[in-house]
Write a protein that binds this DNA or RNA. Structure first.
Length: 375
DNA sequence: TAGGCCATCTGGTCCT
DNA sequence: AGGACCAGATGGCCTA
């Protein structure tokens, strides 16, 4: 019983919190359930003005609901509430004249909660709450940024906070291992490293994000891809790094590569990919991107990647990572990992992140992977 | 309905 | 004194 004492009195709930933790000073809060709800639910859009009005409402409620208070058993609570009541009419009088009957409490005498003190306390508390909310929002924003640079990103199926952190940790570790060893890991090892310690749903999600079947969604690809890219594609087929899993549908939600571009705008991918080739490694301030890169994935950041696709071949190579030759055998044993792919392909296309929302992420991801895999 | 996830409030602690 | 950070508590929402 954490210590929070909630007196639920129907609609006129009085939340009285006193001695939430041992030895803590008496603090009372008297909001109606309604005001509490408002406070919680609308908090994300609160402004200082809202805070002030909330504060006022809180005061109104405090005054209006005193009759809803009931005994909670704790004398200190009672005292605090009494103080609140007393403040109404006798602000500066000594508190608790009737204390003669009660045994004197030890310890420092608690200061009387005058109306002014209560006001100050509430104001301070409000400000602290607002700061805390902002702080948590900032934290969440940072987490959202992290989600976007971690292999599996989807607007509709967001990774939980803890899973995002775990995946990020695994991702960093996996990339570090690649850099350290300078060798190309096999797909299964990479996926296993990514999924280490993740929950089953997240594991499935990540596994799904790491696979792609170009034949499923690119029937006309061969005609529309520029010829030089097709050439490069052919050269890529021999590369050991293929995230594609032939014969399996492409994931309907977040992906690790640019494949979604072809999901969402199958007829515009030619132009859509141009910016990638132009700015793959340098365009960290693309207009379509709403913020700076998170440090772990900054191409020239923590990983100190100096690699840039200077040649046409490198650029093509980046593109063709996603275009293995039809029929190319994927890594053995993927089937279990992608077992649920068939169901996932039922998700409507509109749920897939749009190119605009995803493009930068994709560029960065591809740039990262190219920098790593190109050796 | 239980459990997971989340946002918020809150009081304590540390630091400036 | 005030702000940042933290952890506990609480209640809402969602999903299996």
């Amino acid at each position: 019983m954490g210590g929070a004492c909630c007196l639920s009195l129907g609609h006129e709930t009085l939340l009285k919190k006193a001695y939430c933790k041992k030895e803590s000073s008496i603090m009372t809060k008297s909001y109606t359930e309604e005001s509490m709800m408002t406070e919680s639910k609308g908090a994300s859009s609160w402004t200082d003005e809202c805070l002030n009005s909330q504060d006022e409402r809180g005061m109104e409620n405090k005054n209006g609901e005193r009759d809803a208070m009931t005994k909670e058993g704790d004398d200190d609570d009672e005292d605090a509430l009494n103080r609140l009541e007393d403040d109404e009419d006798e602000e500066d009088e000594e508190e608790e004249e009737g204390d003669d009957q009660k045994p004197k409490r030890r310890g420092p005498k608690k200061k009387k909660m005058t109306k002014a003190r209560l006001q100050r306390f509430k104001l301070r508390r409000m400000k602290a709450n607002a700061r805390e909310r902002n702080r948590m929002h900032g934290l969440n924003d940072a987490l959202e940024s992290l989600r976007k640079v971690v292999p599996c990103y989807s607007k509709t199926q967001k990774l939980s906070k803890i899973e995002t952190l775990r995946l990020a940790k695994n991702y960093i570790w996996a990339l570090s291992e690649i850099l350290r060893s300078g060798k190309s890991p096999d797909l299964m090892s990479f996926v296993q490293a990514l999924c280490k310690g993740l929950s089953q749903p997240t594991t499935n999600l990540v596994a799904g994000c790491l696979q792609l079947n170009p034949r499923t969604f690119l029937p006309e690809q061969s005609q529309e891809i520029p010829s030089h890219m097709q050439t490069a594609s052919a050269s890529f087929t021999a590369h050991p790094y293929s995230y594609q899993t032939p014969g399996l549908p492409s994931p309907p939600y977040g992906t690790m590569d640019s494949s979604h571009i072809f999901h969402v705008k199958p007829h515009t991918y030619g132009s859509a990919l141009e910016p990638f080739f132009e700015n793959a490694l340098t365009d960290c301030t693309s207009p379509s991107f709403d913020g700076p890169l998170s440090p772990p994935l900054s191409v020239n950041g923590n990983f100190s990647f100096k690699h840039e696709p200077s040649s046409e071949f490198e650029k093509n190579y980046a593109f063709t990572m996603h275009y293995p030759a039809p029929g190319l055998a994927g890594p053995q044993g993927n089937a279990s990992l992608y077992a649920s792919s068939a169901q996932r392909c039922e998700i409507p296309m509109e749920n897939i992140m749009s190119y605009d929302a995803h493009s930068h992420h994709e560029r960065v991801m591809n740039a990262q992977l190219n920098a790593i895999f190109h050796d």
